[in-house]
Design a protein around this nucleic acid. Structure first.
Lengths: 228, 228
DNA sequence: CCTGATGATTAGCCAAGACTAATTCCGGGT
DNA sequence: ACCCGGAATTAGTCTTGGCTAATCATCAGG
């Protein structure tokens, strides 16, 4: 009997590790011990230890000193959590008065506690949305994800107009700052100017003109706007 | 600095113990190790061990070989969980299509994960209800509880008409059975007959006549119906 | 080809919280 | 007063998942 049996229900910690590894390597390049440790705010040896356990359970592929990748089983588990997390965020914003800068922590805890039934009920109540309030795509129940391509706003040349699709930030302060400028998924933005050497980016958002740091521009994923 | 500082956030296990002890002694008589162990489906030594830890933390008063009682701190913590549990049940039934026989397990997990903020948002969405779908009173945020008095239906003499207030049962099968007979909080019930020696109880519920086991009658808490 | 620096792993430890087996307490019946 | 059975506790072990300190591997520069 293979170790990958199925649902002996993962612990909270295991779920966090899988989610972190997924985030660090959506494409499948190996993730390093150090990066995982940093993301989860744990020591490197703790991560090494967990990696060993998860590899034995068939959730990770571990090449010592090279990094880890999710196995198909591990990826499936990770996507389940990501789906939960993002649906919970969407639900809290839609129905319980949360704003996008406050949902993250709540979802972080709830994602480990909700049942499949509850998640599907939430999805239904929301009309099976494709993305959460930050624009991150919600994996389907069957594990398929439609990654939105998009380029960082920081790479958009001046003069072009784009639609903001995804905001790759978690810090509440930063999210509030972005919201205050109208920079949320769906916003239409024109790049007015971009100073070299990672200098500030000048934007037009609706009628307003804004200037943001280059670094922030890297977190804003956009798609070119079709002129219609 | 006293050990009862405040919110160093209790673990899931600790919360379960406190809730169990609260349930076993709402009035404040001591609860026995054995009863706690049985309720939580744990071994007696495990409970002994936890009792020691919780006493040291100032959440329990422990008289060895005599039983435990909640301290004011412990009681406060327990009520917080009970409030969460019951509000979650109410919310799931009201907004997410749960039925009263399926909510318990979901609430059992969520109660440990939700924040105070979320709970208060749910309470608001529900209009600050006084009771959950089983008729159990929901403690207020400040820790006050209005226990509904009520007598077991099994103690109501034939001929009397009562209102069903609270259903003291958790097993889904039993709850479904009760629901199928219209026996839910708010139902008006007339006791038609009651056989001696814990014999069956005959009831009129609306237009229907039903017969239930004495044992079940003990779980149905009622208040006499005022004739108006 | 050697040498550091950086990152990864191993060794050894700890706490929470569960368990079984062994022991101790207590209260009731003789 | 004693003994016995049931309840409670203590003793000792296990697993999970953290930690620090020490060791080992890898790779880039000289």
């Amino acid at each position: 009997m293979s170790a990958l049996a199925t649902n002996e229900s993962l612990t909270r910690s295991v779920e966090d590790y899988l989610k972190a590894i997924y985030r660090l390597s959506p494409e499948g390049q190996p993730a390093s011990t150090r990066d995982i440790a940093q993301l989860l705010e744990l020591s490197a040896p703790s991560v090494s230890g967990m990696i060993k356990r998860l590899s034995e359970q068939g959730l990770l592929e571990h090449e010592p000193y090279k990094g880890v990748q999710l196995t198909p089983d591990g990826r499936r588990a990770a996507l389940r959590i990501v789906r939960r997390h993002r649906l919970i965020e969407a639900y809290l914003v839609a129905f319980l008065g949360y704003s996008w800068d406050t949902v993250h922590d709540e979802a972080e805890r709830l994602e480990h506690a909700v049942s499949d039934t509850l998640i599907e009920r939430m999805a239904e109540a929301l009309g099976n949305p494709g993305a959460d309030p930050h624009g991150d795509p919600i994996p389907a129940a069957d594990g398929s994800v439609s990654e939105i391509a998009g380029v960082p706003l920081a790479d958009v040349p001046p003069g072009e107009t784009v639609e903001l699709r995804r905001v790759d930030a978690h810090h509440p302060d930063r999210l509030r700052y972005l919201a205050s400028m109208g920079l949320r998924p769906g916003a239409v933005v024109t790049v007015v100017d971009h100073q070299p050497f990672r200098g500030p980016i000048a934007l037009r958002v609706g009628a307003d003109e804004r200037v943001i740091a280059h670094e922030l521009g890297e977190a804003l994923m956009c798609t070119p706007l079709e002129t219609r």
